[in-house]
Design a protein around this nucleic acid. Sequence first.
DNA 1: AATAAAACATGACAGATATCATATTTAATT
DNA 2: AATTAAATATGATATCTGTCATGTTTTATT
Lengths: 225, 225
Amino acid sequence: MSKCEQCIIKQFNSLKALTKDELVRISGCKTSRIIKKGEIIFDEGETLNGVFCVKEGICKLSKLSENGKDQIVKMVVKGQLLGQRSLISEEASNLQAIALNDMEVCFIPKSEIFADLQKNSKFSFEVLKDMAHDLRDSDDIIVNMAQKSVRQRLAETLVYIRDSFGTNPDGTLSVLLSREDYANIVGTATESAIRVLSQFKKEKLISTVGKYIKIEDLAGLKRVE
Amino acid sequence: MSKCEQCIIKQFNSLKALTKDELVRISGCKTSRIIKKGEIIFDEGETLNGVFCVKEGICKLSKLSENGKDQIVKMVVKGQLLGQRSLISEEASNLQAIALNDMEVCFIPKSEIFADLQKNSKFSFEVLKDMAHDLRDSDDIIVNMAQKSVRQRLAETLVYIRDSFGTNPDGTLSVLLSREDYANIVGTATESAIRVLSQFKKEKLISTVGKYIKIEDLAGLKRVE
DNA sequence: AATAAAACATGACAGATATCATATTTAATT
DNA sequence: AATTAAATATGATATCTGTCATGTTTTATT
């Protein structure tokens, strides 16, 4: 099994603040896991006994609303930590995590994380900064949800996915989402998401290559009202 | 000037994790301030050089959206800290804070907070828990915004305000908000908020005493669809 | 390859909400 | 007390979005 102290992934998250000794210790009790596309990593209401460090792949974090629809709240990609919020507040998870493609994650037990939060203030400050960042993102999402149209939100989502998760060599968005996923990010009906995407296509803002979406007119998408 | 180590307010926020010595030190460099209703505590884009500990009163945190409307993202009341997110991420504030009634706050300089975050892991863990809690709240708000009707959101807002900020002796909500404020919490047009509140009144879910709102049928409000 | 199931697409329509217009009431200012 | 400004209220209308129905395409399964 690969060792945390040599893993490059940690450079991208709070674990970079840990000392070599701490990493060695964590390495000794972490477990690696392969998760298939579509698989549930953890469910809403489940108690997390640690955090996941995402080595490969991407997943969606969603919450079931009372009307039976999933709302995607965040996406977590290679390099990031998963489950830290619930771990810290010591509550059951308020979100469900599902892999959007094949993933590789390392599971680090709660006891290790808590020990390091106690001892290493640099580490806890990194986690704090991470969380502060998430909180700012959430504020933006709230404002968008409240004040913008479905058309605007979907356009922004496409740009966001491009900026955050990148594109394939042919220019298509590297993250493959179903129309239902798009609807669940934007907070609209699946039919509405489909309709708006069709419109974007007609307006030459995007094109599709198989199931993949390609942004053809980035400036145009950003201008959508 | 009153002393932090004797102040009861700190019991309600992360400052309770500080040692007596740390509190004495903070006490020495904090500044107390009275803020009048309607006054701006800090503005969007402003750099915060510390946090505010709210000794009395309540304020709203809002963000201006591109269409020129304010979205209220959170309310901060007596006992809570204000501005911690921006301080930690060392960015300009993404929110504006305005007093909803006369307030008394203590300002604690950034250097003090940072020093304690470095030294006192119990303190930084408390801040972490606070932030984790806020993040969970934000998730809930996102889901509500995306999936619920204006009517539902407004009903929930009234219940939330009752539960979080309490009532006056006559049963009216102790926090006095304009119809525009309600609209800015719910994320709707002021006219729509007014209309829905009028309906609630007709349906005997609420009543008004002057400018104050009284919840007459709590169960009914919770049942609103 | 055939069949079933899921995902995508589009039309028709109803309902929710925003916008604009205009009163009316309440609060602030002179 | 008179005047002005702000907040509240309500109607009319247009627009956006959700829902239901139906058809097509793509993917999975036998």
